[in-house]
Design a binder for these strands. Structure first.
Lengths: 189, 189
DNA sequence: GTCTATAGTTTGATAGAC
DNA sequence: GTCTATCAAACTATAGAC
């Protein structure tokens, strides 16, 4: 049964995420993971050929979760309202889990580059985001860049200075309006 | 001569920064540092009682460099122009050296918290920045938070997506105008 | 597929001679 | 103050029995 093996693999990845949440993404070790899974450390090599392969699988699962959540949204017709709902979901997702935010949106593991298959989900997320921004009226590359940087800055400030709070995140909607209302070439009136 | 010792300590810290620039801040090892300094690894313990103490000294030196550069600016009288010049210098400093940016503005070393003395310079930098923002007209805490997050977001996006370029950094002045012209409670006219 | 055993490496830190 | 020698610990990864 190949299905049995896939379920087991998924359970190990889930346990790895649990552990990363406690120990930090960089503090994840195969010994620790084996302990919570209930096997000996070498047995994990039956499911992942290296530690990098484990990170890669975690990266893929995390991005697929994000993609599912974004695709599950029932967005309003108004492009601006839709963008706000989309980005609020994105920010919530990022702030829910610091370890996940680090592995998905930063590069905290030296030498780790996600494989093409795992990267695919991340690319899809980015494409959806840019499509939403464009639909809301920001077509200039510089405007899109600034918008993306702003959202990333909010997330980073919130996660590192006040995890669990909303001191920064609560300004998201206002800032979205600000950016949409002031494109680079735009006139205020 | 205690002076001789201080000079040697400073030289070791400088070498550590050189090495961190090559190997990454997390890849810095005492053995590697000893090699480039020209001594054996245990000899470093004559100058730093632990690796954390070395990081702490590096953190302090980096922040003092930033403080010197900011204090050395001859700023225009106009508060808005002054803020732009101040922040441009800050962003340049952060983007000059990725390892330095990581140690100073992120927390890439697990378990490392700068000591009070080293933290002092960092606090002074932040205070100066907030004073500049306030002088330019943003007095609301939420406005200051958003401004700081925006600058951090620009730096992070630039450093991680296009090191050495200016695709994000070049929008700094325009975004400063945008934030100053649109305070939370403000009216456009 | 899981185990025991261990190789092989790297690291921070200490002891003690000089 | 610098050295040699070494400890003690952690980790990833592999070999081979069952």
């Amino acid at each position: 049964m190949a299905q049995r093996r896939e379920e087991r693999t998924a359970a190990i990845i889930a346990a790895a995420w649990d552990l990363a949440r406690e120990e930090g993404i960089g503090g994840l070790t195969l010994r620790g993971l084996a302990r919570v899974v209930g096997v000996r450390q070498p047995s994990l090599y039956e499911y992942f050929e290296s530690k990098h392969a484990l990170y890669d699988a975690m990266f893929a699962v995390g991005n697929r979760q994000l993609l599912e959540r974004l695709d599950g949204l029932s967005l309003p017709d108004d492009p601006r309202a839709a963008l706000k709902a989309f980005m609020a979901t994105f920010v919530d997702f990022a702030l829910e889990d610091d370890a996940r935010q680090q592995l998905l949106f930063q590069r905290p593991i030296v030498g780790f580059e996600p494989g093409a298959a795992s990267y695919d989900a991340a690319v899809q997320v980015l494409e959806r985001g840019i499509a939403m921004i464009t639909a809301a009226g920001l077509t200039d590359q510089g405007d899109v860049d600034c918008f993306v940087a702003m959202v990333g800055g909010l997330i980073a400030a919130q996660a590192s200075n006040e995890p669990g709070g909303d001191r920064w995140a609560r300004h998201l909607e206002r800032l979205i309006d600000l950016y949409l209302d002031n494109p680079r070439q735009g006139r205020t009136r």
